[in-house]
Amino acid sequence: MIEAAQAGDRAAFDSLVNEHRRVALRVAWTIVGSAAEAEDVTQEALLKAWRKLDGFRFDSPFRPWLLKIVSNEAKNLVRSRWRRSNRESAAAVPELVESDPAADAVAWERRRSVHAAVESLPGPERLAVVCRYLLELSETETAAVLGVPPGTVKSRLHRARESLAAVLEGHLS
């Protein structure tokens, strides 16, 4: 399908992109923290992907390549925001789904603590955790989104898990 898209087959590229549109949108949202901006960023990234498709190498997977483009677009937006207002990168965490605490009070409380602990992580570690665990990206994909080597992803996740464990031990013990 990629080969067909590279040859100019628009339907093939459309199918290819539709497979990954949702995760691309979520990656963008995680970085920019705004649903409307995430949609803009994603659309722009898809356009850019089309333009760059000739340079895509068949020996590498498509999704990390696409997500890297998405994350770069999102980071560019965040950087332009910094210039304007010094706001921190969002590294947003999706909200916890409300449920009936009475149904499983222990699980609910635990989940709420985990969610709060993730939100309290420093930005780079929070982004790594959201990508790896909440978006369920592979380490390679997470590295592409973060723009760092896989080894750095491992170390950030390790630090994040240690921090989370420390916080959660205090909360839940």
Binding site: R22, L25, R26, W29, A35, A38, V93, P94, E95, L96, V97, S99, A107, R110, R111, V114, H115, V118, V129, Y133, L134, E136, R161, L164, A165, L168, E169, L172
Partner: peptide, 20 residues
């Protein structure tokens, strides 16, 4: 000792993304 990975995996099933 809390299993952080299991806790995060569980959390992933109970979050709502903006597109939802």
């Amino acid at each position: 000792m809390i299993d952080v990975e299991a806790a995060l995996t569980d959390l992933a099933q109970h979050v709502r993304w903006p597109d939802e």
